[in-house]
Amino acid sequence: MDSADGVEILLVEDSPDDVELTLHAFKDAKITNRVHIVRDGAEALDFLFARGPYANRDTTDWPKVILLDLKLPRVDGLEVLRQIRADHRTKLLPVVILTSSREERDIVEGYRLGVNSFIQKPVDFEQFAAAIRTLGLYWLVLNRPPQRAAA
């Protein structure tokens, strides 16, 4: 496993294809920020709260954005979001739901739980790559994240 320190983008995604497309799109857009990939909701929470395999993670260091899929093994995306917002260390972190879901109730519930933004993955590859580029520029360059997650 790569070092879990210095991570700028936490990508929570169980589909290997979508992981590959996303990393490829970041590379094409010359977004070189450090990405860490976790494959299910439980691992995402372990990473954020420095538990289990991530017990030694430097918790003064937080990602600038969390890209969160909804349909995930073990713990689903909305539950991950709920736990992020419930903990004082992580409740202010920018979270973007990135999903294939077209369901209005997922959008409503995501916003009700305090997601920062909700993006439906375009099916077309070119559009997916363009979306990742815009999303990366927005959250890594333009948006100012909280320096400390809590305070």
């Binding site: 959008i107 909700f118 993006i119 815009t134 927005y138």
Partner: peptide, 10 residues
């Protein structure tokens, strides 16, 4: 970002 990409409750 907010007009073309983001979805919010309708």
């Amino acid at each position: 970002y907010w007009l073309l990409l983001n979805r919010s409750p309708s």
